[in-house]
Amino acid sequence: MTTGSLILATIGILFGATGTYLLLPHRLGAAKTRTIYILGAVFASLGLVGFLALLSPPALSPLGDFIAGSFFYVFAGGAIGCGVMTVTSRNPVYSALWFAAVVVSVAGLFLLADAQFLAAGSVIVYAGAIIVTFLFVIMLAQMEGRAVYDRAARSPGRAVFTSFLLLWSLTYCLASVRGKPDGPPPAGELAGPEARLLRGREIAGFYQLAETNEGRKALEHSLRPTSSLYVEADPSKPKPNVAGLGEALYADHLLTVELAGSILFAALVAAVLIANPKRAGVPPTPAAAVEV
């Protein structure tokens, strides 16, 4: 990551911030002209292109890697663009549908990161359940068309400044972190940024050399064979996704599964209790008594 790409990132994020500010609703709910919308869309897409140019390009030589890298660009651009549309849509129904598009794009990115079960699961849970719940509530609560609070934003200038400053800081940190490697010395010929963020099993391989190291026992406990993505920690032999994930989930994280079930049950009870208009212990009103 060079200085030139940092300048590119700054320019891209500035363009994106300008475009998003132009696309957001006005502070007082005043209407924006079509010219402002087109200008905002142009600025936002320029910013998106600048941000995508910041990503490391895919390798060209094997065709499979190149195709996977191109799909990464497609899904990343789709996720960020649909995210901008989610935030800036005047109509909450459109916001929910754009958010479904964000979820589908992120599921594509999950697929590219070898997380097939999570891709399917997030599409089912988010786009299938949560979005439908949102749409039901929107239809229940908002029957009279577009409201004032949908056409007006709450201090959009300061919000855009804050969040894009956060994005620029994160980009800067991710792009140009320098410093001494914190972990054990890199084994062998590792050089460059790979030496600064050692993979878990390399750290384990280092500590297992030192017999008297106190962290060794903890590392051995936390790096059991069920927790690895590969058979015998060999990257050329990946485990099947659902089987490996289930093994890790029910061997290493059994308590987590139980806790998740308890949380779901508590949320079920809470949702029923909150949404139910009839309170226990409150005497019925006279009108209700007359009706009965």
């Binding site: 910041l54 990503l55 935030v87 964000v102 994005l167 994160l170 991710l174």
Partner: peptide, 9 residues
């Protein structure tokens, strides 16, 4: 980077 962009949005 993509995760950071989604978080900021």
């Amino acid at each position: 980077l993509v995760g950071a962009a989604l978080f900021a949005l």
